[in-house]
């Protein structure tokens, strides 16, 4: 292969990839464009790529004030935070025992984790809804959070990570006089930090973006999470006002996108975990 040939090949690659990149970003870019359009431009028969007049963040302001969007976002943050904290508190000790201890009946627990791993969460929406209804958890934060406090995937990931920590480190810590909990918190948790990062990433994406469960268990706008908020938008008057609607949609997707762009390497490594299991 000549240098010239490889340079052309490289150029071609970048052309193809660049076109693909534009396609991938197109919906987002289009949404951004519309979110800055004044109302009269949206349906104007004359096509303008750029807004005919600069309205600044007016549509964003309208989305935030004319709808409970701030409430949705706040709910989303709170619910995701609570879910992730619970998942970690439950999964870390469990994964440690599964990886490092010899306890009777351990295989049974492991089996339950594996079952949980292959059951798609969406499939359990119906029975969980029945249970939530019985427990009086419909339209409560508890109803949004409690069903997801256990993460079989998290236990699985962390168990794999704990298994890779050498036993000698744990034995050294026992000789140093550390208790089991202290070994776990001080030595092992930092050692499996990448796996914990992966779990947080995967969980955050899954639950911030989850539409099905909130639409099942939440009935009032005051408890809605962002994706369910989108569903509510459409039936409200703002739904026909495209500028603010897309400004709202962008603000709902923005937190995760920002996090992703800021921490892309770790974020993608975390996601690649899903494949390496």
């Amino acid at each position: 292969m000549t240098a010239r040939g490889s340079r052309f090949a490289g150029l071609g690659r970048h052309l193809v990839l660049g076109a693909g990149a534009v396609l991938m970003l197109l919906p987002l870019l289009w949404a951004v464009r519309i979110s800055f359009l004044p109302a009269e431009d949206v349906f104007s028969p004359q096509f303008h790529l750029l807004p005919s007049r600069w309205i600044g963040f007016e549509n964003y302001a309208r989305a935030l004030t004319a709808s409970p969007l701030p409430r949705f976002l706040l709910n989303g943050v709170g619910v995701c935070l609570a879910i992730i904290v619970c998942q970690l508190l439950v999964a870390i000790p469990c994964a440690y025992v599964l990886a490092k201890a010899r306890v009777r009946g351990q295989w049974l627990l492991w089996l339950a984790v594996l079952v949980g791993l292959v059951i798609p969460p969406a499939a359990l929406a119906l029975p969980l809804f029945i249970m939530a209804a019985q427990a009086g958890l419909i339209d409560t934060y508890a109803g949004l959070i409690l069903p997801w406090t256990i993460s079989p995937l998290g236990i699985f990931l962390l168990r794999q990570a704990f298994s890779r920590v050498p036993d000698e480190i744990i034995e050294a810590a026992r000789l140093d006089g550390l208790g089991e909990w202290e070994i776990l918190v001080r030595l092992l948790v930092p050692a499996v930090a990448p796996a914990i990062g992966a779990l947080i990433t995967i969980s955050l994406v899954a639950h911030w973006n989850d539409l099905l469960w909130p639409s099942v268990v939440v009935t009032s706008a005051s408890k809605a999470t962002p994706p369910f908020g989108v569903m509510l938008f459409q039936v409200q008057e703002i739904g026909s006002d495209y500028g603010p609607l897309l400004a709202g949609a962008i603000m709902i997707a923005a937190p995760l996108l920002a996090l992703f762009i800021l921490t892309q390497r770790r974020f993608l490594d975390g996601m690649a975990w899903l494949g390496s299991k």
Binding site: E168, I169, E171, R174, L175, G177, A191, A193
Partner: peptide
């Protein structure tokens, strides 16, 4: 007695230093 209560010290084959 558990290892921590024996007042002994040990250097492991892998040295088992806490990596972080």
């Amino acid at each position: 007695l558990p290892p921590g209560a024996r007042n002994i010290a040990m250097v492991f084959q892998s040295l088992a230093l806490y990596p972080h």
